[in-house]
Every structure is written in C-alpha cells, then in structure tokens.
Design a protein around this nucleic acid. Sequence first.
DNA 1: AGATCTCATAAAAACGTTTTCGCGCATAGT
DNA 2: ACTATGCGCGAAAACGTTTTTATGAGATCT
Lengths: 353, 353
Amino acid sequence: MRDNKVSIREVAKEANVSISTVSRVLRNYKNVPPETRERVMGAVKKLNYVPNIAAQSLTQGSMRNIGIVFTRSTENAFSNPFFADVLRGIGSVAEKYDYYLQLISFSDINMEKEETIKLLKSGRVDGVILLSSRVYDSLIYELLSQDLKFVLSGRVLEHNLLGEKMYYVNTDNIGDSYKAVCHLIKMGHKKIAILNAPMDYVVSKDRYDGFRQALMWGGIEHEPDLEINGGYTLEDAKKAVKEKLMKRRDITAIFATDDMKAVATVQAAKELGLRVPEDIAVIGYNDFREATIVEPNLTTIRVPIYDLGKESANMLVKLLKGEEIKERKKILPTEFIIRESCGFKMRGGKYVL
Amino acid sequence: MRDNKVSIREVAKEANVSISTVSRVLRNYKNVPPETRERVMGAVKKLNYVPNIAAQSLTQGSMRNIGIVFTRSTENAFSNPFFADVLRGIGSVAEKYDYYLQLISFSDINMEKEETIKLLKSGRVDGVILLSSRVYDSLIYELLSQDLKFVLSGRVLEHNLLGEKMYYVNTDNIGDSYKAVCHLIKMGHKKIAILNAPMDYVVSKDRYDGFRQALMWGGIEHEPDLEINGGYTLEDAKKAVKEKLMKRRDITAIFATDDMKAVATVQAAKELGLRVPEDIAVIGYNDFREATIVEPNLTTIRVPIYDLGKESANMLVKLLKGEEIKERKKILPTEFIIRESCGFKMRGGKYVL
DNA sequence: AGATCTCATAAAAACGTTTTCGCGCATAGT
DNA sequence: ACTATGCGCGAAAACGTTTTTATGAGATCT
C-alpha cells in the first residue's frame, strides 16, 4: 500500500471516470448513480486517498481553522488552569462544527498584533478567539478596521470604548468582585487589602474596580497602601503579602484577585503565624483546583471557565457562518462559593457572621 | 484602505512588474535590484498585501503545521497541568522554526486514529506529537506503515515492541518509580500500597512496573490487595484510598503515581484522622504546583514537563527537515524531591530516616 | 416527430501562489 | 569579434482541488 502522492487524478483513472466525478462523489452531490459512486469509493479506498487540504482551501476560500490567541509565558495563561479549561470548551464546539484549532501564541507580546493580523489575512485562520490577558487595544482597532472576525473571551474591559462594536463573552468581574468584598464588609472587616496582578492585565482592572466600588458602598475610605501588587509569580505574591502584613498589623482581610494569589496569601499568613480566617480572612477568585487543596479551603468566585470557551467558540462560529447574532455580549453567571478561608471573623472573643 | 481580496496580481500591477518578480522579492531571492525591490515592497505595503497560505502551501507542499494529538476529557490531559506546560515547550520550538501548532483533540478516543491519519495525509499537518495518554498501538502501527512523521512525548511504553522504530522523548518512569519506592523501603516501610491510574494509561503501566521491581529489590512480597485503582478523578481516588486504609490498617506508605493522586491520598488520610507522614508516608509524581500547596508538601519526582515538550518538538522538527537524528529516544533526567510527606517514619518511638 | 428536459459525465476554468524556462541585454573571457 | 556568463525579468507551467460550462444520450411532453 505504498501511496506516494495519490491525488484525485489517480483516483479518477482507477475508477475510470473524470476528476469532476470523483469530486462530486466525495462531496456528496446529487446526480451520481449508485454504481458510479461505488466504483469511485472503491478506488478511493484502494488507493487510500485523502484530499489535499491546501488545494481544497484554495478553492473553498477557507481552511476551517479557528485561531486561539494568547501570550505564552511561564507565569501566565499557558501554565494556568484557566487555559486548559477554556481550550477544552472551545474544542468541544470546534469539533461539532468541523473546525480545527490553531494555536497562536507568542513568548513576546509585541509580536501578537502583527502576527495575528497576518494569520487572519493569509487565510490560515478564519477567525480568532482572543484570550490574551493584557490590555491591547491597538490589536482590536486593527481587527475591527480590517473587518476581521474575532471574539474576546473573558478578557474585555467593561469600560472599553470599543465595547459596542465587539463580540465578547465574559463574566461580571466588576460586579462579582463587588459582591465578594461587600461580603467581607458585612462580616465586619474594615481594613481590607486587595492583592492584585499588575493593572495591565485586563481582568485585574475590572476586579480592582469592583473592590473600590464595594469600599465605597461600605463607606470605607480607600487607602492606596492597602493595594498589594502580586507580581507575576506565586513567590512574588507571597513576599509582597508578607511585607505588607508585617507593616500593617491592622489588616483583617485580603481580597485576592485569583486563587493562586489567595494561596500565596494563606501561605504568607501562616508563615507569619497568623491564622486564616481568624486573624486574616481571605477570598480568592476563579475556583481553581487549588482552592480545595490549600488549607483552609478558599472562599472564592467560581468562574465557568469551560463555558467561557464554549460560548466564545459558539459566537465565533456564528460570526463565521454570517449568522445574525442577537447578543454580542454574553455575560456568564458565576457562583460565590463560601468555604473556610473567610467563613468567620473573631471579633471581641466570638465569631461574627 | 479597503482591500477586498488583494492578491499578488494586484501587487504586480501596482508595482509595474510581473507576478514572478513580486514573488521573488517576497521570498528574498537574489537578482533583484534594490530599486525594483523597493517598488514592490511599496506596493505590498500600500495594498496591505499578505500572501495566501493555501496557495503557498499548495506549491510548497507544506502548511508548516505541527499537530498535537491528545484526548480531550475533563479528568485528563486537557485540564492537567501537564498539558499546559508541555504545550509551552512545544510552542517555544515551533516559534523558532516558524511552525504553527494545530490542536488535534477528541472527546472520543475512537476518532483519534482515523482523524490523525487523515490530518497527516491531507497535509493539514506535517507531523504530529502524540501526547495521548492511553496505549493505542494501532495508531502507531498505521503511522509507521504509512511513513508519517511523529514523535511520542512522555508516553511510550518501555517494553513496546515498536519501540525500536519510533522516535520518542520520555523520562525513565520505571527507574524513577523504582527509586522512589526503594526510598520508602529503606525508610523501613514494608506495607506499601500503590495508588495508580487505570492500566490502560501508558504511564501507569511503567510506574507500576517500577513499583513492583522495587518490592522485589526489597524482598517484599507483592500483595495485589495493596494496589489501589485511583479511577479518573480526585474524588474517585480519595474514596478508594479511604476504603483501603480502613480495611488495611497495616499500610504505612502509599506511592501515588501522580501528585493529584497524592493529594487525594493526603486528604483521605487526614479525613480518617491519620497523620502524614507519621502514620502514612506519601510519595507523589510530577511535582505539579499542587505538591507545595497541600500540607504536608509532597515528596515527589520532578518531571521536566516543559523540556519534554521542547525536546519532542525539536525531534519532530528534525524529522521534518529530513535531518539525521542521532538519538531516536531521548530520556530526560528527573529529580527526586524530598519534602515532608514522607520525610520521616515513626518506628518504636523515634524517627527513622 | 420535433422540441424540451433531465441525467450522467467530461472538459476546462479558476483559486493564488512558486518555480522553471527562456529571452534580451550587457559584461567578461578568449 | 565571437562565444560564454550573468543579470533582470516576464511568460507559463505546476500544485490539487472545486465549480462552471458543455455535451451527448435518453426520456418526456406536445
């Protein structure tokens, strides 16, 4: 069964028909009598023929590829549990609609824009889902102005000026953060710190905004000194928290903008001999697997990561099909999960709330 | 800058040269005087031209795509920290050699074989890296018999009959497991259980073999009753461990074949009121992030997952280039990391190594 | 019986590149 | 002066499909 380069031509010869007939059979067109069909299929089988994708794409004008754009870095999306789940969600939809997944990742964020545009215009991908975690408006401008198809997944700024023109799937980062921090306030906390990623991350900004709004709701004055920059790694975050906790003994709660940072917070507190949640209450975000491994388990906001991928892909597929889309923006529901890391707060010798 | 369908033809017209000249300029051929080159580049820029990949691939015979094959399932590779890191390693190499990454994943393992072959033969991918975690020899047979290019990454059975003909990158699962279990034996453990994934996983079989060999080395009789099937999820594993520990009070150590199973073990032990490592010593595998989050931190075998991806990709690229490969099999070094989960064992009132 | 229609198929154009070939011209080697 | 050599470039073939157009044969209608 040596089949060096078997093309539709050989199949046609084998089946004693023309090239066009082979193509018609393979594409399931009408007007092909069963007898011919069988002869052709026999030849296909015998020669072990598989159509060439490049040629097919050339005439069809599409490669049936969906691009997934993100920045590849150690501390970032790629090694993030987030990434695997969102990919799984996207994959489920791609499979259903017969699309393939092309990974578009960069070690260097600066290549992102020009490469993404190139890939779209070259036809390597029909459309892209942007998972990139940093604010990067110029890419979006470019995509919009060139009429390229894209969906933002879990990463749009609510206040982005371009918001109206884009398609995106997200959760309510501002609102959910607001609720989480309000929860802390209701439990009596007054000195609440936020442990955040650098603000150039799309999500960080929103979660920060929610935090600020909650403080306002609680009538708590905002202290810039209670904003902790968690850096890019768990170690960075741990160190930053420790330093802050040593200087500011009055902090009683920390809102970490993702579970890994919450883990860092818990570890930092423990190393300082503080008890969680009795001395320091902690709230995380995302409900990663780590949330139930660290002790105490984390109170956190469960983000439906798989669905985020799935809905993003669904939206992009509709976009590619040219179907009309009723909702350009899809906000997925989350769940506030209360576990031990902020369940109680010792105030004057007894647990409150 | 509306540029509906600008092809090389338009660029040629704009620059007042022939199509072939444009192509020559873009491909950086010699014999193009600077003046012409500039004229062409000007036109390219002005028209915002990007060559069509399908056409390019058709003449070049390659799409410059590397396929990454794996099974997509909730409890499996995809949501596994393993996956993200190996992908990052592959990505770094792909970027370097100007290859793109095509994800080839299936919810249903049965599609894997036929789809993978199809994708290779259709030219959608030039070669594949197999991350699939199950033993699936028939796919490998097919790939070999059709002369398709592939590399197995971290997933080959050492005793596989086809081993000689394949290219793969792996760690020494048998040897490393052997060492880990010997470590337990040296510490005085006699009743050592193994918590493993179902044996149809490639890796599970090897780690099990290492476990058995260590028992033999230590002159410990093997008891099938001390083999615990961890199932596919953390909850499954936890339940299985609990049941076993309740029945077999004599177990003093558990070798878990990956860190998530080790976490399950620790949690199970704790829920039964047993102390780790005093009552039950635990060893994990992989050194996932969870290893230092669970308490006590896990003694484990650190697998260089990023490098696994990187070396696999390097090997595949060489294969694709047609370069000669000195080593078909690459075994990467690992590191046995001792942490608290098996640091000590109480014997007769004192700690023994 | 002649015109029209359907059916099954083949021939050929088209998709957008890369690459081979060849041509005209200038330069260099004898 | 006459052949090589090389340079710059255009024409055209090739890649492997899909799709449009064409065609001949048979069936159907009037």
